[in-house]
Amino acid sequence: MEQFHSEVISCRESARDYYELVFTWKGPVPLPGQFLTLRCWDGESPLLRRPFALSAYDGAERRASLIFQKRGPATSIMTRLKTGDHMDILGPLGGSFPSPETGRRPVIVGGGIGTGPVLFLADALAKAGLRPLLVLGFRDKNFVPRVHLPLGCETVITTDDGSAGVPGTVIDYLRSRDDLENSRFYGCGPHPMLKGLHELALEQEAPCSVSVEEVMACGIGACQGCAIPVTLPQKFLRVCQDGPVFDSRILVWT
């Protein structure tokens, strides 16, 4: 990890209340699943840096991307970022998605704010020739992001109301497929989606890694603010340092 100065290349609305931010990257090469914290405003409110998972990295151009949702004061400020604006970045932080086990096909699901990191992962696995199944779920067509989808994947879009792609949730879709033996599951998105994925992975006796989100202070493992409950003896792990990607089997699912 490094703390470095970054300039905004572009910031545009990619779906309703969702934005794609592209910016210069001077830090170590980030991997899919890793995140950064940033600050692009002065003053004491909003206070803390905000964490975001990366959605793409272009090593040749030294630029990275993330997808964020306009949710509160900090992300509202971010929606107004213009080309050339300055950001203070700390990254890359946390661990990355593990590689798929030999003989297993990557099945990657994402939705909502979890779309970014799965796009980064799908792109990396596709470039490695693994032809992942990428299933992205959204509430309705207005939330389907107009972003560059990775090549070399079998990509399926689902919407809850059927206004775009396959009607239903990503889990409904996966359960409709009969070719998921020997899958290797990955996910990032809303809690019900990840829980559904975890349960499917248990049934299939397949490995499953999920990237989770938690409110964060330091982002580097020092403060223990972003702890989540786990089934291990230590009871809690830090999302920022021990995650944000976890084996779904060690998380406590409620």
Binding site: L47, V215, Q234
Partner: peptide, 17 residues
């Protein structure tokens, strides 16, 4: 092990932990 989660929330010009 520490307290139950969530363990922090941002407040006006501050935070609770």
């Amino acid at each position: 092990p520490g307290n139950d989660t969530p363990r922090m929330v941002e407040t006006p010009a501050g935070m609770l932990n």
